[in-house]
Write a protein that binds this DNA or RNA. Structure first.
Lengths: 223, 223
DNA sequence: CGACAATATGGCACTCAGTACCCTCTGTAA
DNA sequence: TTACAGAGGGTACTGAGTGCCATATTGTCG
């Protein structure tokens, strides 16, 4: 029933546009009562994103289950759950993308959903980094970076109409974040230095010690 | 008139809460017609953030005026414009912060405003970095990082009730971003290397050339 | 001074999202 | 059969936001 409503609503949104479709239109075509619509969807916008609640729960569960993996890697993997939700239904995702671009109300709604993902990631990182010092700051900045990178890759794929490999675009985008935040095997290079490699470390004077240590560990494979 | 409405509305929001205050309540107390309210504010939420449009325009103008400054520094400075708007009215900003935290509708609205700042910054960075390669990706990730760092510093100050120096918190937060993204005079270090300084740069093997160059330029002062 | 245009404001009626409350139907257990 | 529970339907209401038109108010020209 919930799915019937979501499907009917989406179809009408594509036909007449989001704002020119009333809830009465939806329930009329679906053959149910108006009250039932709001039982399944708290708002008209929710019918456009019927699967984000589940995905958010999946992400929370995923982060609760990852053990002592590198934190940045963990949140990158968590972000990939969202990508998979999109890539599971390419046609739907592309149509929804186009719809969302055009409707301010849907853009705003999507923002609030994205924000919840970001806060989920930030909460995990805060736990890992600790509240002391700049832990919370790092957590929030990294979470924002991961979300921005993920969305960049995702949108690249969506704009292409769902052609090609979405994982590749997102992996590449997340690679930049992992690289910058120190958990990074840079593309084209082996993740650890082999014996005899000449490793030149470059850092700004006064770079914080945790970053220096993190970089070194990443290169010599002690991370 | 616009300011009278904003002031009256905010006062009522503090007294009765946002949702329990109707537009009719506002215009009744302000002594104007209901229609006039929506002439000045497209929505009830807008009355809570009456100065963001101007600030957004200021940011756009600022970015259009900065010359060939280091891009990350430029967007950090642009973000500080927002901070200054908040710190210009500490009492109001703190009250609004508390109000916004409690009202989902206001949180969502604020998100959409923050997003516009982020897109303004990203647009500037895109121009600077160029569309080719990962320019757009870097622009979006850096913009998201700057916004996240700024908001972290800002919220730290707002949570403290407006005590202390907001600039310090935001400078510190933005310092992390500038540091990570390569335009960084790390705290406590001189921004450029002096003659005879021993500068050891540390980078992962295979790090992209633009980052290495950027780091070097930042340290030896050619950027 | 008066006519007049332009802009600002108020009033009214309407659409529509979202909510509260209550009703009906259907299936199940005793 | 009654008793009950839970899903769905109907009705009426609040309140945001819009369109349209009437009414000041202001400024300018003759």
């Amino acid at each position: 029933m919930r799915e019937v409503l979501a499907r009917t609503a989406f179809q009408l949104f594509l036909e007449r546009g989001f704002e020119r479709t009333t809830v009465d239109d939806i329930v009329a075509r679906a053959g149910v009562g108006r009250r039932s619509f709001f039982r399944y969807f708290p708002s008209k916008e929710d019918a456009v994103f019927p699967d984000h609640e589940r995905c958010l729960a999946d992400m929370t569960a995923f982060l609760a289950a990852v053990g002592d993996a590198e934190p940045v890697d963990a949140v990158c993997d968590a972000a990939r759950l969202v990508l998979r939700m999109y890539s599971a239904n390419p046609e739907f995702s592309v149509q929804r993308y186009r719809l969302t671009r055009e409707v301010p109300g849907l853009r705003t709604y999507e923002l609030s959903v994205v924000r919840r993902y970001e806060q989920t990631l930030a909460g995990y990182l805060r736990d890992r980094y600790g509240e002391s010092g700049d832990g919370a700051l790092r957590a929030e900045v990294i979470a924002a970076s991961v979300v921005a990178a993920h969305n960049n890759g995702l949108r690249t794929w969506l704009r292409s109409g769902g052609e090609g490999d979405p994982e590749a675009a997102v992996d590449h985008a997340l690679g930049l974040v992992r690289q910058v935040w120190g958990s990074a095997p840079a593309e084209g290079a082996s993740p650890v230095a082999a014996d005899g490699d000449v490793v030149v470390m470059v850092a700004a004077k006064g770079a914080p010690m945790w970053r220096v240590v993190q970089q070194i560990e990443a290169v010599i494979g002690q991370g």
